[in-house]
Each structure stands twice: as structure tokens, then as C-alpha cells.
Amino acid sequence: MENLMQGVMEKVKTWARINSPWAIHYNSGSCNGCDIEILATLTPRYDVERFGIKLQGSPRHADVLICTGPVTLQSRDRLVRIYEQMPEPKFVVAVGSCGISGGVFQGCYNVVGDISEVIPVNVYIPGCPPRPEAIIHGVVELLKSLQP
């Protein structure tokens, strides 16, 4: 009986997660380009809130961590801390060429590298910066992969 209840609960949770993921955004050293495109996805033309995706402030409420930029030495610890504060299960989306490979900032002395060197990444969205449509597509792909 208990097992059955647990199974049902899990199903409900997955359903809720897929239909309304809450996201948090952290910029670990980007040039801003990716960040303004992420903000643009919230505004009327793209409006991801109609899909139930909500950008909010606290890592403790978030399912998805949207990261931009290469990781700088200064923000590395913060990024790890934010990641650790998120409840399980958690997913990471790396936005932009910088998050994938370090982009143009490769080899700068204060840059650790791409995001996957610091935390595990689930989805990469290429582009410099990716268009808002691409960002939405990336998040949708992530949600699709959660479908049981």
C-alpha cells in the first residue's frame, strides 16, 4: 500500500515538474548578452510563463538552474553553492557558447572554463547569444526528457 502511494506521489511530482518548472538564473561571468536574451524570454513577445515556466529568486525553490557565461574564479564557489542549495532532482541548462566551451574568453587568466567543469550540465544551448526561441527550445527539450 505504502509503495503504491509513493508511486502515485512520484507520478504527481513529475507531472507537476514538467508542467511548471521553476527556474533560477545565475550569471557566472557572462558578457550579459545571454542574460538579456533570457530576460527577453519572459517578456510579452516570447512569454515563457504561459508554459508555466517561472523565473524566481531562491535556489531552494528551483528545479532548473539556467547558467550563462564562462565560470570565473570568483563566481565558481557561488555557482557550486547555488547548485548545492537546490533540492533534488535538479537540472542545469548552460546557455551560450561560453557556457559550452568558454567561448571567446577561453584562456583569459581568471576564467576556470565552461560550466560542465564545475557542475553537471543537462542541456546545452549554443549561440552567441542564442535567440530566445532557442532558449525556449532548450528548456522544452529538457522537459521532454523528463517525460516518463
Binding site: G29, S75, C108, Y109
Partner: peptide
């Protein structure tokens, strides 16, 4: 936090 060392 986003100092990357671009000038160098």
C-alpha cells in the same frame, strides 16, 4: 564576480 581578465 565577472572579472575574466579580458585586457590581458
Amino acid at each position: 564576480f565577472v572579472h575574466r581578465g579580458m585586457e590581458k
